[in-house]
Design a protein around this nucleic acid. Structure first.
Lengths: 237, 237
DNA sequence: CGAAAGATAACTGTTGACAGTCTGTAGTCG
DNA sequence: CGACTACAGACTGTCAACAGTTATCTTTCG
């Protein structure tokens, strides 16, 4: 996700080193996340190639990358499909997220900078004022706090792993309206988490994150269970 | 609901479904892990294609997959290279491994089957007898115990994530002779871990795994530090 | 003699065509 | 009338050639 930053003085600004495959990947990724390409739908290579005015080569490459990103499933000699996660897979993914973010919280408690702590508090206040004064259609702030904590773990690889898991989880979550009602509880849980981080209490931060994400998991599973019920009524397939 | 039942005796095991890209990937993966392809060396598409008697298409696909597996780095318009990990990256990867396996231990304590527990004990005894009676050139048993625990977490996705991290970590570890001296301590740590799992004590299993892997991390870092010293003497690149 | 500039070679990115596989449909036989 | 078979269409897997970029070597100038 994050572009590798090169400091070799060769190229001050990387020209459009973007390959065609890069652009096709970006476009498809956008279409999938936005819901433009429905879950489970087929991704026809020739159609996509014609659509974007390129040949099938770059399209195949893009599909391959999206498959590794977890947004697409590839079936040999059959084609590519927008990935559909069932409840069990969502749970498994969420548990991986818990594993990663709990450890990130632990590391962050030991390594977070003072600037990081300030930013954390600022985010907290922002979300609280938003909460009291109006509608909160922003699961983004929620994610940003988590993103910040993971970043302050000081482990780029961990950050990358979390990002990948979240890309996969974003898919079913965006379908089901996501949070909203739980936001109020989440703010409390965030407050506790921040307190432990400020105190640089690794074990406390871990368990706070654990409680927070476990609650979030249960909430998500409930929402999805309802959504899945609707799906089967509409009779997909 | 009334799906037509297909009994066409196609084939119980359709394994010629292997595409050329699959085979190229497997071959390259083997060469890289075995050290046949030195760390940092270039992977020339045309050379590989000619070598295996295929065209560049499947080779590109294989390289792409290996890049996502972390064994290869791709540089735009420059080529593919066998990945070289520095100490910092190894540490980061290992921390991810810790995050994943600690959570796996926690889950396994809650979910492990009786058969799993028996197998665990069997592994433990096997490694103890090996230890007392001769040389122990087998870090494989060591890994197998971890593999078993992760499997008993009941989370396929977690299992997959651990496997991927270990593929990446195997690379620098195989270079440095790996464990050996630490095997004795490891056995003790394993015993403690198994005790917690048997007692179905999730928190205990987690912290035991945490201690075990942290010790392993420090050991690995020390070994690599020595190995890296040798490398720079030989002056590669 | 060393360094910048230009030409040349090697390699990756991309393309369009060909071949093999799978899916769905029409036809045939019991 | 139902099930098996043969066929046709569509699509993916693979290939060989072309185009653009990067690296290397030679040449030339200070």
């Amino acid at each position: 996700m994050a572009e590798t930053f090169r400091l070799d003085g060769v190229s001050p600004i990387d020209r459009s080193n973007l390959t065609l495959a890069d652009r096709v990947e970006a476009r498809l990724r956008e279409q999938i996340v936005q819901g433009e390409r429905p879950t489970g739908s087929r991704l026809n290579e020739v159609e996509i190639a014609a659509d974007l005015g390129v040949s099938r080569g770059p399209v195949r490459e893009a599909l391959q990358r999206l498959a590794h990103a977890g947004l697409v499933t590839l079936e040999s000699h059959r084609g590519a499909f927008v990935r559909r996660l069932d409840l069990g897979e969502v749970r498994e993914l969420f548990e991986v997220r818990i594993a990663l973010e709990c450890h990130a919280a632990e590391l962050a408690a030991e390594r977070i900078s003072d600037a990081g702590l300030e930013e954390l508090v600022r985010l907290q206040e922002a979300s609280m004022s938003e909460m009291s004064q109006g509608p909160t259609p922003t699961p983004f702030d929620h994610l940003d706090l988590h993103t910040l904590i993971v970043r302050e773990s000081g482990n780029g690889r961990l950050q990358q792993a979390v990002a990948q898991v979240n890309v996969e989880l974003r898919l079913p979550r965006s379908r089901s309206g996501a949070t909203g009602a739980r936001a109020r509880e989440a703010v409390d849980e965030h407050r506790e988490l921040i307190a432990h981080l400020t105190a640089r209490d690794a074990e406390g931060a871990r368990s706070a994150m654990r409680r927070h994400l476990t609650a979030s998991l249960h909430n998500t599973m409930q929402l999805l269970q309802v959504a899945e019920g609707h799906d089967s009524e509409e009779g997909s397939r």
